[in-house]
Design a protein around this nucleic acid. Sequence first.
DNA 1: GGCTATATGTAGCGCGGCTACTTATAGACG
DNA 2: CGTCTATAAGTAGCCGCGCTACATATAGCC
Lengths: 111, 111
Amino acid sequence: MKPDALRGHLDALLLATLDGRQLHGYAIIEALQEGSGGALDLPTGTVYPALRRLERAGHVVSDWSTVGGRKRRTYKLTQAGQRALNAERSAWREFTTVIDGVLGGGKWAQT
Amino acid sequence: MKPDALRGHLDALLLATLDGRQLHGYAIIEALQEGSGGALDLPTGTVYPALRRLERAGHVVSDWSTVGGRKRRTYKLTQAGQRALNAERSAWREFTTVIDGVLGGGKWAQT
DNA sequence: GGCTATATGTAGCGCGGCTACTTATAGACG
DNA sequence: CGTCTATAAGTAGCCGCGCTACATATAGCC
């Protein structure tokens, strides 16, 4: 998976991963690995700044906790984040429809 | 359609647009508009540099012609470009499968 | 002590799509 | 003729964001 492909879709992935549950950053990375069958292995330098952006945007909120001596910053969606997730999902659907149409429609399109 | 979403997928769109026919840059932009139902309206500052990148990469070749007093640079796929298009198509399929899985798999995934 | 896993974070790079602009011709309209 | 639109190609430079490469810290195992 070329890295550029994620551009503009990372927020959707993070919001979707937090949908209905609260996770800390490290767990989000693992959840993304699992949920993608190993295809997504996002570096911390990608995920942590992205989470802070989402928090600044008001899409998620975070709480600190300590589990087994290790500090965790646990994130969960806000209402605005839930709305943003819905928007991201429909934007994704529209996006794939458009690209699919162009990629497939070259030769064997019938009107 | 947010501009970032295209990142990393523009080459696929251009190659697919040139699949089985030869077009000049301006016509490619129009073909993309048509083929996407108006959703894609790429600025020339996006398309022309991208075509030159594809030519440097050996995926397309261009020929100059003059039609109605206007200069046209007409592009067509090379064999390498055709192969690249196939690769882009399967990469796209894989990409959408992965993202679809994460975006959809949040709550109602069953194993 | 050293290694791995867990956990969070930052500085700075690099690239590619976009904005804004330039150049040029044909044709329509008044 | 002057102006406007459509057609056609191009460049300079901005900007955002995912990535690389670090730094930091604790728990647990050998």
